[in-house]
Simulated scan of single mutants.
Amino acid sequence: MDIVQPKDLEQSLGLAKRRHAELCRQNRIFNARNRIIGGDAEAWDIQLHDQKIREATEKARHETFAAEMRRSDKTTCTLEDRERRDRKNLCKAITDFQQSLQKPESRREFDLSDPLALKKDLPARRSDNDDRNTVSGMQRFMGEDLNFHERKKFQQEQNREWSLQQQRERKNARADHKRAEDLYMKTRLQFDETAKQLQNLESATRKAVRAAVQEFNKSQALESAERKSLEKKQEQEDNLAEISNLLRGDLLSENPQQAASSFGPHRVVPDRWKGMTRGQLEQVRLVQKQQVQEKLRIQEEERQRDQEWDWQRVQNARTSVLMERQRRRQQRDLRRALDCSNLGLAREQLLQKKLMKEVCTDHPTEDYFTQFNTRSR
C-alpha cells in the first residue's frame, strides 16, 4: 500500500486545478454564445455606451413628447370650455332676439294660425260688383243680369255709333266710286288717242321698211349672181392648175430629191420618201455582212474562253481532290500516332495504380479524424 505524501497531494491538487481550468477554457472557447476570445471588447464597450446614450436620448425625447401632449391636452380642454361657453351665450342671444324681434305676429304665415282671423276678416259679400265674388263663392249666378240697365244703355249707345259710322262709310264709298269712274273715262280717252297715233306711225314705218327691204333684196340678188359666176370661174382655174401640178409634180414622177431634208443629207422627209437607192441598199447589205462576221468572231472567242475556263475548272478540281487525299492521309497518320501515345500512357497509368495499391496499404480511419480539435491548446 502506497503512502500518500504531501507532495503527491500538491501535485494532485495542481492537476485538478489545471483540469478544471482547461474545462472552463474549453467551455469558453467551444461555446459560441458565451465566447469573447477573439472579439474586440473595447468596441463592444463603446457600442454598449452608445446604446445607453441612445436609450437615454430616446427616453428624454419621449418625456418631452409626453409633456407636450399634456400641455396640448390642457390647451384643448381650455378651448373646449371656451367654445362651450360661447355656444351657450350664442343660444341665449338667439333666444332673446327671437322673443324680442321675431314675434308670431310678424311672421308671414301668421294669418293661417291667427286666433282672431274671423274677427279681422271681411264679410263674404259687400255688393254685386265685389271682386271677391268668385264662381266658387256662389255669390253670383248665371242669368241674374244684375247690370241690366247699364248694359242696355251701353248697347244703345254702341248701336247709334255703329249706324253713324256705316252712314259715313257708305257716303265716302259713293264719292270714291264716282271719282274712280271719272278717272277711268279720262284715262280711256287718252289711251284711245295714243293708240290711234301709234297705229298711224306703225303703218308709215311698215311702208318704209318694206320699200327698203325690196331694194336690199335686189342688190343682194345681183351681188350673189356676180359672186357665183366669179367663184365658178375661179374653181375652174384652180382645177386646171391642180391637174397641171399633179402631172408635172414630183409626186407622180417619184423624184427622189423631193425627200431630201433641210436638216442634213442623212435625214429624209417621211411623207415624201420613196425608198432607198441601189447604192444605199448595197451599203446596208455590206454592213450586215460585216456584222455577221463580227458576231461569228465574238462567238468563237467566247467558245475558246469557255474552253479555257472549263480546263482550269477541271485542273482546280483535280488539285482539290489530291490535296484532300493528302490531308486525309496526314490525319490518319496523326490519329495512329495519337492512339499509340494514348495506349502507352494508359499502360503507364495502369502500372502506377498497381504500384500504389501495393505500396500504400495504410488507409485513415475515423479514429484518426476524431483526435483533432479536442483541446484548447
Rank of each mutant, 00 (worst) to 15 (best):
S320V: 05
F369V: 15
R107D: 08
L296G: 04
R347W: 10
C91N: 03
T75S: 09
K52S: 13
N159T: 01
R377C: 06
D128M: 07
R248E: 12
P115E: 05
V209N: 14
R87W: 06
L247P: 00
F263D: 14
Q291W: 09
E161Y: 06
R297H: 08
H177E: 13
R54S: 02
S12Y: 07
V4I: 14
D310L: 07
A117Y: 12
H20K: 05
S262P: 00
K289Q: 14
L247W: 07
R206V: 08
S127T: 03
H266Q: 07
A60D: 15
A16P: 01
Q26W: 10
T78N: 06
D333G: 02
Q220K: 13
V268N: 02
T374F: 00
N129D: 01
G143K: 01
L351M: 14
V268M: 12
T75I: 04
E235I: 07
Q156S: 09
R108F: 01
H20I: 09
Q258A: 07
E358T: 15
S253A: 01
N129A: 00
V213P: 00
K88W: 06
R126P: 04
S106P: 02
N245M: 05
E193A: 15
E10H: 09
A43C: 10
T365Y: 03
Q199D: 12
H149V: 11
R336Q: 09
P6H: 13
D96G: 07
R25K: 07
K357F: 13
E254L: 02
R318C: 03
D192K: 13
P104Y: 05
L281I: 14
Q293W: 00
R325Y: 12
R33F: 11
R332H: 10
Q283I: 04
M276C: 06
I3C: 05
G143Q: 01
Q330Y: 12
E193C: 02
A180V: 14
E215G: 08
G143H: 06
D310V: 02
V209P: 05
R305S: 06
L322M: 09
N147A: 02
M138Q: 05
A346G: 03
Q283K: 09
L222E: 14
G38P: 03
M276P: 08
D367R: 10
S127F: 00
E157V: 01
Q214C: 15
I243D: 13
T134P: 12
D367S: 07
Q5A: 10
M356G: 03
P123E: 02
V269M: 04
K207Q: 15
R327C: 01
R375D: 08
D40K: 10
A21W: 11
K233G: 00
R35W: 00
R87E: 02
A117L: 14
Q165I: 04
E80L: 14
T75Y: 05
L118D: 10
L201R: 15
Q99F: 03
V314N: 07
E366G: 03
L351S: 08
R126E: 05
K354W: 13
Q234G: 04
Q5D: 09
G38I: 11
Q99K: 07
S376V: 15
D250V: 14
I53N: 01
H363I: 05
